[in-house]
Write a protein that binds this DNA or RNA. Structure first.
Lengths: 283, 283
DNA sequence: CGCCAGATTGACACGGCTCAAGCGGTGTGG
DNA sequence: CCACACCGCTTGAGCCGTGTCAATCTGGCG
C-alpha cells in the first residue's frame, strides 16, 4: 500500500519495562528478595497449566512465554505474549485458578513471586504496588488492542500490528537490534495469537515481504519500512502507555463520530530513538 | 444444535459486583464519601472522549455504558460493556489519557471518583485497594475471553457467549428477571462489540431464535434454553471469577494437548439460583 | 400523518479456512 | 556419515462464512 521512507522507529526514551520503570534500586532489591527461586527453563516448559490451582506469579526475566487457552472445540488461542520484564500470569495475584495456561516459547529464566509475598511487598513498598498497577493496566490496554485487532482488522493488518508492537516492546527492554529482533514463534503460534490459520499467516507474511515492509524468517523479524508498516495497520504508540515517549508522538485525535466499519484518513510514522538496558536482570 | 431442557441458570451465590463484593459497610461508606458528584446522564452522553485527558474514574451506578474505540479506518469497536457496579474507565487510575472513549448506552447514573482520592483510599483502606485489584483482574479476564471469542468463535457462538455473559453479570447485580434482561444495545452496537456486521448480527439473532435458544427484540433478551445456549458457545463461568459460585460449577479441565483449530467434546449446563441486591446503590 | 433510526432481506463478492500434497532443515539412530 | 522421521513452511484448489450494497419495512415519536 503506502510507500514511505525506510523510516526510523518511534522515539522512545523508556529503557525499562513497566514493572521496574519507576522503581529505585531499593525497591528493585526488595522485589528481588521477595522472589522465591529463579528457574531456568527450556522451550516448551509449561509454567502454569490451564485451570490448575496456582499461588505465585511468574516474572519473565529472559526468553519468551505465551498465555494460551484451549477452546471448547479444541482449538488454541494465545491472548498474550510475554517478553523479558513481563509477568506471565498477573491474575494469580488475586485468583487461585486461571483459565489460561502459560508456556515457554523459548528457553529462558523466570522468577517466581509467591502471591503472599507480593501482597506483603505492596503493603510496605507503595512504589512497588504502583508499578504492579501500571503493569496491570498496561496489560489491560494491550488486551484491548488485541481484541480490536481481531474484531476490526484484516489479516495483514493484524500481522503488521503484532510485529510493530513487538518491536516497540523489545526495543524498550533492549532486546531489539536496529529494526529487527528474534521472534521464536512458529507461524502456527502467530496464527493462534491473531485468530488466524497458520496457512493464512504464511501467505500474509509473504505478502508483507513482497511489499518490502517486513521479513520474518528463521525465527527473526526484520522491519524494512517502519513508516509504511505502521501506517498499514494504524499502529499508534499510545496504547502501550510508555510514560517517557517524546511529545511529538502524542496520539492524534481520531475523527469523532464514526459509524461501524467505514472509511478514513490518517497515517503516522514516528521516528524512533532506540535505547537499551537489560530487563530485570538486576533482580 | 443441542436440544436440552429449558435449563435454569448457573448457581450463583454472589449478590454484589466485584467492586463491593468484599467491602464492609465502613469501607463502602468511605468509597461513597470519596466520590465527587453523582451524575444523572442520558443515553448517548459521552463520559469520556477517546484520547482526551482524564483524571477521574466513572463508577456506573445504574444503566449501561460502553467503551468504544474508533479505529484508523473509521470503523468502531466496543471492547467492553459496563453494567451497574462496573467502572467504566479503570485505566484512568494510572493513565491520564485513554485510547478509548466511554458512552452511555442508556440513561443512568454515574459516580465520579477522582484518581487522587482513589489513591488516597487505597492507602488508608486496604480492603478497597483489594476490591479494585479484583475488579481490574476480573476485567482483564473478561477482555481475554472477548479476544478469544473474536479469534476463535463463529458469529453465532460469539453472540451466544455475549448473551450468556451478560445474563450472569446482570443476575449478580440483581438486574435480570428470571432468564431475561433489558439489553439497550442496537444490533449495530452488538456487532461492534463482537467484531461483526449489524447485518450479520441480525441474521445470527434470527438463527438463534429459530433454534429456540434465545430471543432478542425490543431491547430485551430472553434466554429460552440456557443449557443449549451455553453449550453452543462453550460458556463457562470460571473466567468471571465469581468467588461465591457453587463448587458444582467448577470449570472442567479441557483436553490438554490440542492443536490449532480442531475437534472436541464437552457441554456444561449449570443450574442457576438467581439472587439480587442493588449494585452500589448504597454509594 | 410524516420522519427517522433501526431492523430486515436479498443478491453477490471475497477474505480467510479447509484439505491435501510436497518441500526443507535438523536431530537421531544405525 | 547416511537414511529416516518429524516438524514447520509452502503452495494449490475449492468452499463457505461474513461482509457489502441496496432496498424495503417497522415502530416510536413529534
Amino acid at each position: 500500500m503506502t510507500t514511505a521512507s525506510a523510516g526510523n522507529l518511534p522515539g522512545l526514551k523508556a529503557t525499562r519495562p513497566w514493572l521496574s520503570a519507576n522503581l529505585d534500586a531499593a525497591d528493585r532489591n526488595a522485589l528481588a528478595r521477595a522472589c522465591g527461586d529463579i528457574r531456568t527453563v527450556s522451550a516448551g516448559t509449561d509454567l502454569l497449566r490451564q485451570d490448575a490451582p496456582t499461588n505465585a506469579l511468574h516474572i519473565l526475566l529472559d526468553g519468551w512465554a505465551a498465555r494460551y487457552k484451549i477452546m471448547e472445540d479444541g482449538s488454541r488461542f494465545i491472548p498474550a505474549l510475554a517478553v523479558p520484564g513481563d509477568i506471565c500470569d498477573l491474575d494469580a495475584l488475586r485468583f487461585g485458578q486461571l483459565d489460561y495456561g502459560v508456556t515457554m516459547l523459548s528457553a529462558g529464566t523466570v522468577a517466581v513471586l509467591p502471591r503472599q509475598r507480593a501482597d506483603a511487598l505492596f503493603a510496605t513498598n507503595p512504589a512497588i504496588a504502583d508499578a504492579f498497577w501500571s503493569l496491570a493496566l498496561a496489560e489491560n490496554s494491550i488486551l484491548t488492542e488485541w481484541a480490536a485487532s481481531m474484531g476490526r482488522r484484516s489479516a495483514s493488518q493484524r500481522v503488521a500490528h503484532l510485529l510493530c508492537e513487538l518491536l516497540v516492546r523489545l526495543v524498550i527492554v533492549g532486546k531489539a537490534g536496529g529494526h529487527s529482533y528474534d521472534l521464536p514463534l512458529t507461524q502456527e503460534q502467530i496464527a493462534d495469537a491473531l485468530g488466524l490459520t497458520s496457512v493464512h499467516v504464511n501467505r500474509t507474511l509473504h505478502s508483507l515481504r513482497s511489499m518490502n515492509l517486513v521479513t520474518v524468517q528463521h525465527r527473526r523479524a526484520t522491519i524494512h519500512d517502519w513508516a509504511a508498516l505502521s501506517a498499514l495497520c494504524g499502529f499508534r504508540l499510545s496504547y502501550l502507555h510508555l510514560e517517557t515517549v517524546d511529545d511529538e508522538f502524542a496520539p492524534e485525535l481520531p475523527p469523532s463520530g464514526a459509524r461501524s466499519r467505514h472509511r478514513v484518513t490518517q497515517a503516522s510514522g514516528p521516528t524512533l530513538r532506540p535505547s537499551s538496558t537489560s530487563a530485570l536482570s538486576a533482580l
